[in-house]
Design a protein around this nucleic acid. Sequence first.
DNA 1: CGTTACATTTACGTTAACGTAACTCTCTCT
DNA 2: AGAGAGAGTTACGTTAACGTAAATGTAACG
Lengths: 143, 143
Amino acid sequence: MTSTEKTEGKRDLSDVMSIREMCDAFDVTPRTLRFYEQKELLFPIRQGTRRLFTRRDRARLKLILRGKRFGFSLEDIRQLLDMYNRDPGQQEAQLKRTYELAQDRLRQMEQQRDELNEAIADLKAQMAWGEDMMANLHKAAKN
Amino acid sequence: MTSTEKTEGKRDLSDVMSIREMCDAFDVTPRTLRFYEQKELLFPIRQGTRRLFTRRDRARLKLILRGKRFGFSLEDIRQLLDMYNRDPGQQEAQLKRTYELAQDRLRQMEQQRDELNEAIADLKAQMAWGEDMMANLHKAAKN
DNA sequence: CGTTACATTTACGTTAACGTAACTCTCTCT
DNA sequence: AGAGAGAGTTACGTTAACGTAAATGTAACG
């Protein structure tokens, strides 16, 4: 008991970051961290009124930011994160579900990329047309 | 005068579409057309209270929808459209300006595509990792 | 003339992810 | 004790492109 209290106490008090340290470390604003807490994406402990972000919070934040880069919404991310910390039993089904979500997202992203490529090609074509127009305008001006 | 009135009258009354015809032809909702009118992207004439969309409106709508595919905002599109119908004189500067905007947009789109490709690659890597996890879970279950 | 079928106007609602006041609280330094 | 630095809370603001509801109009059909 005493040893457990001691080690946990050590972990909680030493391996902890203030809101500003978090902002500097992850390049986010305080507002963002508070927002994520409100959305139940992070659960910093409180020292009086101050937030103290644990190792666990930092791990979650890393995943959150990665998820955002993948284009997942915060709500999607919250659900995924929840799955991994609830019911530490049936890991398999959860992993599978995550994998499927990732597959869906991957398909969306690839389709989006394809559409973007199409649009890029179209726009390039239009621009070539525009170059012609400009060239002709110059010729017309010379005549 | 009389001939002008006659021809213009013919054009305006025959070559004109109702709001529903427009919706069917361009696959948009009435709300969208009214919204575009309010935003000064379209200028349908009025028969009493009804809107009548002219050939010119249809041409503009085509450009609007194309612009949207390119990711331009309606406000951007309005400005571009305005340039082409105002001051039919200095076409050159306007064309150049449009061309530059298109170039900017093109760069944005290409960058966006690149970022998307990066994210896709990352996500694929993560998924491969997920597959490993699942495989290991199965092995662990068998032992 | 009643009803059906569209059209129109007006104006508030939606969504995501924070930004931005405005004000309070708590320390710490001097 | 005064002052300034940071943290915290509350709550409204932002942006784009329409959606949607409510009330009203009007044209044609039977």
